[in-house]
């Protein structure tokens, strides 16, 4: 399989930069996988797992929202926060869920509440996906 360039950056640092074969991205409109020659796309992300396939090895990272930018030069994910799955534990996700629940309670507008409720559902999905 042909490789393309992939970069994962969070505000604090560059987490991943290198050539990969495929990356599964949790887009807000649904999961999609990027391979070489993917059409130029710009998508927002939901909290979820990014799966990086480097041919010989796979790596999974948890991202908490952000953007994916697919262009002719490769894929760039601008994550709000990104943590390798190995470093993720139940307590952390629980904490995120709790935060989101507080957001629901604090939300003033309908839109804000809807977004917070969606976030809880997404986080619960992640929790299930990890089998925690």
């Amino acid at each position: 399989m042909a490789a393309f360039h992939f970069e994962l950056v969070s505000p604090e640092r560059l987490l991943f930069s290198g050539d990969v074969e495929a990356v599964a991205v949790p887009g807000t409109e649904g999961q999609f996988t990027v391979m070489k020659g993917h059409a130029a796309t710009m998508s927002t992300l939901k909290p979820g797992i990014v799966e990086v396939d480097r041919g010989s090895s796979k790596q999974r990272l948890f991202v908490r929202g952000g953007f994916a930018d697919v262009s002719s030069t490769g894929l760039t994910i601008l994550a709000e926060q990104a943590i390798p799955v190995e470093e993720l534990d139940l307590a952390r996700i629980e904490r995120e869920i709790k935060n989101a629940q507080e957001d629901v309670a604090d939300a003033t507008g309908d839109d804000a509440r809807r977004m917070a409720v969606e976030k809880i559902a997404q986080l619960q999905e992640v929790k299930a996906a990890l089998g925690l």
Binding site: A39, A40, T41, M42, S43, S71
Partner: peptide, 11 residues
């Protein structure tokens, strides 16, 4: 570059 490769936006 946009002229050669139009972006798809999601949502």
């Amino acid at each position: 570059t946009g002229a050669s490769a139009p972006y798809e936006y999601e949502p």
